[in-house]
Design a protein around this nucleic acid. Structure first.
Length: 800
RNA sequence: GCGGACGUGGCGGAAUUGGCAGACGCGCCAGACUUAGGAUCUGGUAUCUUUGAUGUGGGAGUUCAAGUCUCUUCGUCCGCACCA
């Protein structure tokens, strides 16, 4: 079969017949299948896109054949840094390069032959989409979920620009190699932490990979503890601790270098040392700062604090292993019972006071729970009792309280860049922050801007954009010059698809409530903690605002693996190991390529590219085609053969259904190969009518996996268009019942014999039969049988 | 460093979730057909000192039974909040 022309033929027929358009009037059996949308940073689809989309489409087609009304849209996540960097390098405007890339990618996506409903297409960089991204911002702001605060950015002093983390290589700017510094800017945040608890607890309701849920749990990082207030001569500060039972062992406290009180607490004598330490810290990133392999460093600030438990004066240090962004930005140092504090105390000769005793183990630091010592009236209590009691006593004095902390931080959404959705806010000297009115959306991103990096947000330099009249007082005012993180665009796109052309609202709530949540979401696991968490946050926020009636966007989630280069490394231009799908599509056609992607890898694992197996898949479709086109005019058939073939057929149906539901495409294809072999083996000895039924099922079974190929064969065999509206085969369980089954016989766990027995044999009879076997009785003679374990229908184990 | 995963023949991978390790395929070997074969078909293929024994990165443990569970160790990969 000339697959290339067959594919073109059916793609046209499907498009003309609107075969893949979603039926909005039949939502009772809807199935929303969503793949993470494409990011058009390069003009071409790479193997990663194919690997994400083609197998997912096979799943979607399978569900459709099972009678579901499948909605499978596609779009483009079109804002972002790479397009802007490309523009800085080449002078080609991000909008031009992006829209061009999208055009090419759309054509290539169509050649996959996936059943994307292109009428629902969205492009996030177009005003009719980002208008509603801005609307989301306004709604979050109205509901107290967006606020401004200072936050550090990576600043390159030589390029005069803010750098993304990815542009910082070993603390230096990727372009000019200068040392990157941290600089505080006032920026917008979304209050995702308000939903920390729900984001955590609702994970239990989701059909997601356990590892992904675990990663999100750890990312949210709930810890239950207490806040304790320490007084100083210059004001008080709080520390967060999960081990308030060790409070009597505190020998110092540490503030993070960015803590608000640092300057106040630093005495003139120590000013110089503290300032130079702070300057050093601003050059190191957080991952390095938290590394426990790095030697701890810190500096005394000259002041002392009072431990509220025992009124002891303890020194206050500034150290970079404490982060402002977590807890209170201050910790109490208990060297005897914490690894990091222990190291720090040894380095700076601070006292190490043991206050917890364990059952065994005298070595310090001792980080387990135990019994209190040296803690006044709390001596003798267990750690757990003491936590309770110490909090009670201190909270009555007003200097401690129970506190739950999350590692999760609020989401910083401001970007000092051009290629993103403008933040719909106006800054007026008198009226302060003025959100743009909904009727004035979208705030259009101007085309003519200078986005070369020179210290200012590109939009700030665009006068016709930045200068406006204040909508309240009419005085000259300025727009916010920053744009939104592209993760904001992708946090709600799944809500837009079902109503993508709505110009009145982001979506129609009734429609969305019927079509969502997404039933199956497929995309890379690298999104486990960010995109997937942000999308969940948006969903919950929109629910609480009353726009939708569900709280989780993605009921079920699957991660595809990564296809690596033939050398086992990630594909990259610089490594020269990029494999392009195009050459294979031209040579074999898209169905063969799709089949190979599904057969050659474990879907969730991926692995190094190797095209040896693609021939095998091609050979397989040839075999399928030949057997399907074979004539069998037998009036009647051999009963044994028909029974065997019927078993093979129904076994394949049953297994393939289970495999398709779990994205286990490689085993589904293996079962199809077995079934095809059975057709070769028994095809000539069965009746013509039975053979035709079997062949028809083969076409239906292969249809989701090789859609054009199957549609063509279906037509040749006289089937009614389309094969995808012809139903998926259903397993006849009766055909799977066998009269005889093989039982493995183990002695002390080792296989010594196999016997064929009647399937319905009674246990007593089975035992007798097995013990009388020649192979077995020789092992047993003269020994006592301690146990006789029967695993029904599989094996027995005789323990001597 | 922290968090998460993975490790099975020469290779890609399977294993009903604790029950016959290596399904299916590639490669290789042998045979058939053929003027011819990098086509097609059939059979074989974990290893070894082969009446048996060993074997799922290494070491220990739980169990009648471990690729699967526990501990430990080595190696590889992903994420770490401004790449998306």
């Amino acid at each position: 079969m000339d697959l290339i022309s067959v594919e073109k033929k059916w793609q046209n027929i499907w498009e003309d017949n609107k075969t893949n358009s979603f039926d909005y009037d039949n939502l009772s059996k809807k199935h929303y299948v969503l793949e993470m949308f494409s990011y058009p940073s390069a003009a071409k689809l790479h193997i990663g896109h194919w690997y994400n989309y083609a197998p997912s489409d096979s799943y979607a087609r399978f569900k459709r054949m099972q009678g579901y009304n499948v909605f499978q849209p596609m779009g483009f996540d079109a804002f972002g840094l790479p397009a802007e960097n490309y523009a800085i390098k080449t002078g080609i405007h991000p909008q031009d390069s992006t829209l061009n890339n999208i055009e090419t990618m759309r054509k290539q996506l169509k050649r996959i032959g996936a059943m994307f409903d292109w009428s629902a297409d969205i492009v996030t960089c177009q005003p009719d989409y980002y208008k509603w991204t801005q609307w989301m911002f306004l709604k979050l702001y109205e509901n107290g979920l967006a606020y401004r605060s200072e936050a550090p950015v990576n600043w390159c002093p030589s390029c005069n620009t803010v750098l993304a983390n990815e542009q910082v290589i070993d603390g230096s700017c990727e372009r000019c190699n200068s040392t990157v510094q941290r600089k505080n800017l006032t920026q917008w945040f979304f209050k995702i932490t308000k939903y920390a608890e729900e984001l955590l607890s609702d994970l239990d309701t989701l059909d997601w990979p356990e590892k992904t849920k675990l990663m999100q749990r750890n990312w949210i990082g709930k810890s239950i503890g207490a806040e304790v207030e320490f007084n100083t001569d210059y004001g008080s500060f709080k520390v967060f601790t999960t081990r308030i039972d060790t409070l009597f062992g505190v020998s110092y406290v540490v503030l993070s270098p960015e803590h608000k009180l640092v300057d106040k607490l630093t005495t003139p004598q120590y000013k110089e040392a503290v300032n130079s330490y702070k300057a050093e810290c601003s050059k190191i990133n957080e991952i390095e700062r938290l590394s426990s392999a790095r030697e701890k460093s810190g500096v005394f600030c000259g002041s002392y604090a009072v431990n509220p438990a025992n009124n002891k004066k303890i020194p206050i240090y500034i150290a970079d292993y404490v982060l402002v962004s977590y807890g209170t930005g201050a910790v109490m140092g208990v060297p005897a019972h914490d690894e990091r504090d222990f190291e720090f105390a040894k380095k700076y000769n601070l006292p190490i006071n043991r206050v917890i005793k364990g059952v065994h183990g005298d070595e310090l630091p001792f980080t387990d729970y135990g019994t209190l010592i040296g803690s006044g009236r709390f001596d003798g209590m267990t750690s757990l009792q003491a936590m309770e009691e110490i909090i009670n006593e201190l909270s009555s004095k007003g200097c401690a309280q129970k506190k739950i902390n999350y590692r999760l931080r609020d989401w910083l959404v401001s970007r000092q860049r051009y290629w993103g959705a403008p933040i719909p806010v106006i800054h007026c000297e008198d009226c302060k922050i003025v959100p743009v009115a909904e009727k004035d959306l979208p705030v259009l991103l101007p085309y003519n801007v200078d986005f070369t990096p020179d210290g200012k947000s590109p939009l700030e330099k665009c006068h016709e954009f930045i200068n406006v009249k204040c909508p309240i007082c009419g005085k000259p005012a300025k727009r916010d010059a920053d744009t939104l993180d592209t993760f904001v665009c992708s946090s709600w796109y799944f809500l837009r698809y079902p109503d993508s052309k709505n110009s009145e609202k982001p979506f129609d709530s009734d429609k969305i409530n019927k079509l969502l949540p997404v039933d199956k979401y497929i995309g890379g696991s690298e999104h486990a903690c960010m995109h997937l968490l942000y999308a969940r946050f948006f969903t919950k926020a929109l629910r609480d605002m009353g726009y939708i009636n569900f709280g989780e966007p993605f009921t079920s989630l699957v991660h595809q693996g990564i296809i690596l280069g033939p050398d086992g490394n990630r594909m990259s231009k610089s490594k020269g190991n990029v494999v392009s799908p195009d050459e294979y599509i031209v040579k074999y056609g898209s169905d063969i390529f799709r089949l190979y992607l599904m057969f050659g890898f474990a879907y969730t694992e991926g692995g190094p590219w190797n095209d040896e197996g693609i021939k095998a898949v091609s050979r397989f479709t040839d075999r399928v085609e030949k057997i399907i086109l074979k004539q069998n005019s037998n009036a009647s058939g051999n009963i044994e053969s028909e029974k065997e073939l019927n078993f093979a057929r129904n076994f394949a149906i049953k297994e393939i259904i289970a495999d398709m539901d779990t994205f286990s495409f490689n085993t589904a294809i293996a079962r199809l190969m077995e079934y095809t072999s059975s057709l070769y083996k028994y095809g000539e000895s069965v009746s013509g009518s039975f053979f035709n039924q079997c062949v028809k099922d083969l076409i239906l079974l292969i249809a989701p996996l090789a859609p054009h190929f199957a549609e063509e064969l279906w037509q040749i065999k006289g089937g009614k268009f389309s094969v995808f509206d012809s139903g998926f085969p259903v397993c006849d369980e009766k055909a799977l019942i066998r009269d005889e089954i093989e039982i493995a016989v183990q002695i002390n766990g080792k296989i010594r014999a196999r016997v064929k027995l009647q399937a319905d044999i009674k246990e007593k009879e089975l035992k007798e039969t097995i013990l009388s076997l020649k192979d077995i009785s020789s092992y047993i003679s003269g020994k006592e049988i301690k146990k006789f374990i029967v695993v029904k229908g599989k094996l027995v184990n005789i323990v001597l």
